[in-house]
């Protein structure tokens, strides 16, 4: 029996449990948010009475982007919502409320989207928010192939799946942000250390004291329109020839030496 067949043979409760474990697992290991969202769309289709699913997430500027879709056709329908600025997902994202529309062939607030959706074979839609407390991250769109409303139990399950996926997304953002901040700190530390190392190199090569070495470094950076830390880094890395700097002697009045701060213990 294939894996797919195995999956289908599980009853819905067991599959629900497996799905939650699958999504929660992504929280402990290295993971790719797109993977999590793709799992969410495909499991939504398997678990719920939905024919297809798609996910939109807001980027840092607050614009919605298609992040996952169970089929190519759904990706196009999601894009259609964004481009025409109308559809259940946008309403869901803007209000944070679950949007259920059982029959798009009758009146709907989104005439262009409804027409496209019905044409694609999905007369019934539902959108649940991806949210963390008050923050709406995006939404999960479910598409049904018959004009029936998704049951209350299915909507509740869809929301629970969306909630778990939201935690994964938030965790991923926190990790990325922390990595950026760590990188900035390390970069600033390394740059600062490189300046001291470069001073030592120049002092040795030119047989001058550290203050003069620093003047040479600054002068070279200024004369060549380069940053001080960049020049220091290049010198330390060996990508800049020390003798091209050592020629930058004879500065006018020496600029003030960097303060050698006393250590602040206690």
């Amino acid at each position: 029996m294939s894996d797919d067949a195995n999956q289908r043979s599980l009853n819905r409760n067991a599959l629900t449990a497996v799905t939650f474990v699958e999504i929660v697992d992504t929280l402990v290991d290295d993971f790719d948010v797109i993977d999590v969202l793709t799992v969410l769309t495909s499991r939504s289709v398997e678990l719920l009475e939905a024919a297809a699913a798609g996910i939109l997430l807001a980027d840092t500027a607050g614009h919605l982007r298609v992040m996952a879709a169970s089929t190519e056709q759904i990706e196009l329908l999601e894009l259609f919502q964004i481009q025409n600025d109308q559809g259940p997902c946008l309403d869901c994202f803007n209000t944070g409320a679950v949007i259920v529309h059982a029959d798009l062939e009758t009146a709907s607030p989104w005439p262009q989207f409804a027409a496209e959706c019905v044409k694609a074979g999905f007369p019934s839609v539902c959108a649940v928010p991806l949210r963390l407390r008050d923050v709406i991250l995006g939404c999960l769109n479910l598409f049904m192939s018959t004009p029936v409303s998704l049951s209350a139990a299915d909507v509740a399950l869809a929301q629970a799946l969306a909630d778990v996926a939201s935690i994964a997304i938030i965790q991923d953002q926190a990790t990325r942000e922390a990595a950026i901040r760590e990188g900035q700190l390390q970069h600033a530390l390394n740059s600062r250390i490189a300046i001291e190392q470069a001073k030592g190199m120049l002092a040795e090569r030119g047989r001058v004291d550290m203050d003069t070495a620093f003047s040479i470094l600054r002068r070279f950076a200024r004369n060549n329109n380069r940053g001080l830390t960049e020049v220091a880094g290049a010198l330390v890395a060996g990508t800049l020839n020390i003798d091209s700097l050592a020629r930058e002697r004879r500065p006018p009045p020496p600029p003030p030496a960097p303060p050698s701060a006393p250590r602040r213990d206690l």
């Binding site: 600033a188 740059s191 600062r192 001291e196 190392q197 190199m201 050698s260 701060a261 250590r263 602040r264």
Partner: peptide, 29 residues
């Protein structure tokens, strides 16, 4: 801290060890 520079409070960490880094530069030459 301004972009690319080390926060003043953290700068002391490097300043305290300035001679070690300077000596490393000298010995490398």
């Amino acid at each position: 801290a301004p972009v690319g520079t080390l926060a003043a409070d953290l700068d002391d960490v490097v300043a305290y060890r300035a001679e070690i880094h300077q000596a490393s530069g000298m010995v490398s030459v």
